[in-house]
């Protein structure tokens, strides 16, 4: 064959070899297909560790009990026992891994807003949903408007006068 055929062909082969070489260098050793084959698990294995090592923020009620036993025992006697503390107070841990109560602790939220209680206590008369079974108000502005709910109801013991 003539030169003008060979020369570009060699250039093309050269480029292909270069790309393959670059690929070997660039693609990490642990990149490949794993348990679910090429179609569903073609990835870099150690990325799984990134997600598994993500910081846990919500510690759960049992964690609070160590230091706030009074609150936990109080709430456990009331219908609010189903609401975990951090739903109202925010997560105990933060993105840096600092956990309440540490020296540089994340200060937990104390939310006295009426809106916090509206999440469940605004009555929505939806026949096929649990929402319609919670005591509440179709129009919350009829129930002591302008005053924080927690100035009359203790959120940890919502029955008037405590439980």
């Amino acid at each position: 064959m003539k030169n003008h055929v060979w020369r570009p062909l060699i250039v093309v082969i050269g480029i292909v070899i270069l790309i393959l070489a670059a690929r070997v260098v660039y693609v990490p050793k642990d990149f490949g297909s794993y348990e679910r084959g090429y179609m569903y698990s073609w990835h870099e294995k150690n990325n799984e560790d990134f997600w598994k090592n993500f910081k846990i923020k919500y510690k759960g009620k049992a964690y609070c009990k160590d230091c706030h036993e009074d609150k936990v025992t109080m709430i456990d006697k009331t219908p609010h026992r189903i609401i975990m503390c951090e739903n109202c107070h925010g997560p105990a841990g933060d993105a840096e891994g600092v956990v309440h109560y540490d020296d540089k602790r994340p200060k937990l939220v104390i939310d006295r807003s009426r809106e916090l209680c509206y999440r469940c206590h605004v009555k929505l008369p939806y026949p096929t949903s649990g929402r319609s079974e919670i005591k509440g108000f179709l129009d919350p502005e009829q129930h002591n408007p302008g005053i924080e709910c927690v100035s009359c109801h203790n959120p940890h013991s919502p029955k008037l006068g405590g439980a």
Partner: peptide, 20 residues
């Protein structure tokens, strides 16, 4: 269980905080 859901949205709040 959609019968049990009351639409309080506390799951959404928790998810956003937990997962940054």
């Amino acid at each position: 269980d959609t019968y049990k859901c009351v639409g309080c949205g506390l799951c959404v709040k928790a998810c956003k905080n937990e997962n940054e």
